[in-house]
Design a protein around this nucleic acid. Structure first.
Length: 511
RNA sequence: GGCGCUAUCGUCUAGGGGUUAGGACGGAAGAUUCUCAAUCUUCAAACCCGGGUUCGAUUCCCGGUAGCGCUACCA
């Protein structure tokens, strides 16, 4: 699945080395994306190396679909990375590390039969530290049973009764300490010989010369175990920086099961977010440049990023849960799911609109064109270039072009309520009079902004109507709805033929 | 249950022993306007609770409460 299983560059040890290490057991969610981004920012800010490492030691739960989802999301972000590894190809290293720890007497074999996670209940049961009898097993007895083929897990022998304290300095959470007595004898190797996350992660971090581990706060307490592993192997632990978690509006950890597709990075992509806007949004969750800046370019983010700017409190991603119906549709994947704007965090939506408005007309036009073509319309690029400025301030997502500018793309307007044609403080007769007049005037007018402006305003005056009363029937006749881009520009792009034809149709509707 | 982490407007956050507690999104009102947007202006909106330290705590300390995390042969 990986593009390559070997580093695509020679290892660069000159600067800090950071890694993003997702486990391919699910799709890439927004929290992971933020972790990736923060690592990337740190690397770029400090002329370091960004490493992608797939932590795929859980063979049972790994899936190719998940690997694909991770790459989909990461590629969309378009930030890139410098080296790439896959843990499952580094098993020898993990086993060797485990062996070293075992030989130093800092680990022991646990022959207790495995019991599933369901047996392990967090309820009223006391603190589990180790399986009685196993920690004290003599080496000869242990060797004998292992040689006899009895399966075992390898557990770290956490110091007990020594009053020893495990500590580290977290770049975000500060000085962290914990009694070793309170740390359980965690597993290093499973009974099938596969390394656990703790072992594999530390062995790889050491081997890959990782200097800074920047990861979710859910690993903060795990770090004590990791410190113990580093000490046991003789490696200097990297620096740690734990990130506050991204949580749902209900305060719980983001999960697809509970919160639906809104937690998946590809959902944002499919909804028409610009990756730059999405990245910007994520950066503002749990980190701040401290100078009130909100919209920041990639360069500004790199320049401003520092571990000191990271907060300690969890941040809410303020999305609205998608409806069951929508979710079913998304899961079925039969047709393209359109998420309503309210689905996403309003700030993310706002930022996206900001980014859209900041794009050049040419750039935006090209992006919109591909959306429009993707929807099955055929539009001339030159025409798209004229449409784009008319809707630029009116869309929040790229795909909004389909609803904001639909009337430019279709030959036949979808049906609308003729009552819409009736202007403020007017009636059907007035609407008809307006359209009649407009038709006559427009038939003899150049379809340029100024000429249209002049012609229609004079017409309104002749009819003794306000401009608004004059324009609304025409707008509805031509766009099929009341809310649309400015009239003259719209007519100019639409052209005389289409305009007159649609006015004729509107007059028919009124009869 | 044990251990750990956290606590400023609805949300994201700035700040910090003495401030009118700042900004942004969202909300409300207004301006502009051919509608809708965009833009501009204005308004409402917060220091979890209780002790201590102090002349003075939202800020520092302790306790409580709440939330979250870890407590797997998941990561």
């Amino acid at each position: 699945m990986l593009a390559s299983s070997t580093p695509f560059k020679a290892r660069d040890l000159s600067g800090p080395r950071v890694r993003f290490a997702p486990s391919p057991t699910g799709f890439l969610h927004v929290g992971s994306a933020r972790t990736f981004i923060f690592n990337w920012l740190y690397a770029r800010r400090n002329n370091g190396t960004m490493i992608l490492r797939l932590d795929d030691t859980d063979v049972e739960r790994n899936s190719d679909a998940s690997v694909a989802s991770i790459f989909d999301g990461l590629n969309w972000l378009d930030l890139g990375w410098d080296e790439e590894y896959k843990q499952s190809e580094r098993l020898a290293l993990h086993q060797k590390t485990a062996q070293t720890i075992f030989e130093r007497g800092l680990a022991y074999r646990d022959f207790t039969p495995t019991h599933g996670p369901e047996a392990e209940k967090s309820g009223t049961q006391g603190t589990w530290l180790f399986n009685p009898g196993m920690r004290e097993l003599s080496r000869s007895e242990s060797d004998r049973r292992a040689a006899a083929g009895e399966p075992f897990a390898l557990r770290f022998r956490v110091p007990r009764g020594t009053g020893e304290e495990v500590r580290f300095l977290d770049a975000v959470y500060g000085d962290q300490r914990k009694q070793a007595d309170a740390v359980e004898d965690f597993a290093l190797l499973r009974s099938d010989g596969m390394p656990t996350y703790h072992l594999a992660s530390c062995a790889d971090d050491a081997d890959l010369s990782i200097t800074h581990v920047i990861r979710g706060q859910d690993h903060l307490t795990n770090t004590f175990k990791h410190i113990l592993i580093f000490q046991a192997t003789g490696f200097t632990p990297p620096r740690f920086a734990h990130l506050p978690l991204l949580v749902a509006p209900d305060g719980t950890k983001l999960s697809k099961r509970r919160h639906g597709p809104v937690v998946s990075v590809t959902t944002y992509r499919d909804a028409g977010f610009l990756p730059e806007a999405f990245i910007n949004f994520l950066c503002l969750l749990g980190w701040s440049p401290k100078d009130n800046r909100e919209r920041m370019s990639r360069e500004e983010l790199i320049d401003a990023f520092s571990l000191e700017g990271i907060n300690r409190a969890n941040a809410v991603v303020n999305f609205t849960e998608t409806t069951a119906a929508l979710e079913a549709k998304a899961t079925a994947g039969l047709e393209k799911t359109v998420y309503p704007e309210e689905t996403f965090d309003p700030k993310a939506v706002w930022l996206n609109a900001e980014y859209i408005r900041a794009l050049s007309i040419e750039d935006l036009s090209a992006r919109l064109l591909s959306v429009v073509e993707g929807a099955g319309y055929r539009v001339d690029p030159a025409r798209m270039l004229r449409i784009t400025p008319l809707i630029r301030e009116r869309i929040k997502f790229l795909c909004d072009v389909l609803t904001a500018a639909d009337f430019f793309f279709v030959d036949q307007l979808p049906p609308y309520d003729p009552a819409e044609l009736i202007p403020q403080k007017g009636d059907a007769a007035m609407a008809f009079k307006v359209l009649e007049k407009a038709r006559a005037v427009l038939a003899a007018t150049d379809f340029t902004h100024d000429a249209l402006d002049h012609a229609l305003r004079s017409a309104a005056q002749e009819l003794g109507l306000k401009a608004g009363q004059m324009f609304q029937p025409i707008r509805v006749a031509v766009c099929g709805r009341k809310n649309a881009p400015p009239l003259f520009e719209t007519l100019a792009v639409l052209g005389s033929d289409t305009t007159l034809a649609r006015i004729d149709q509107a007059m028919k509707k009124l009869q």
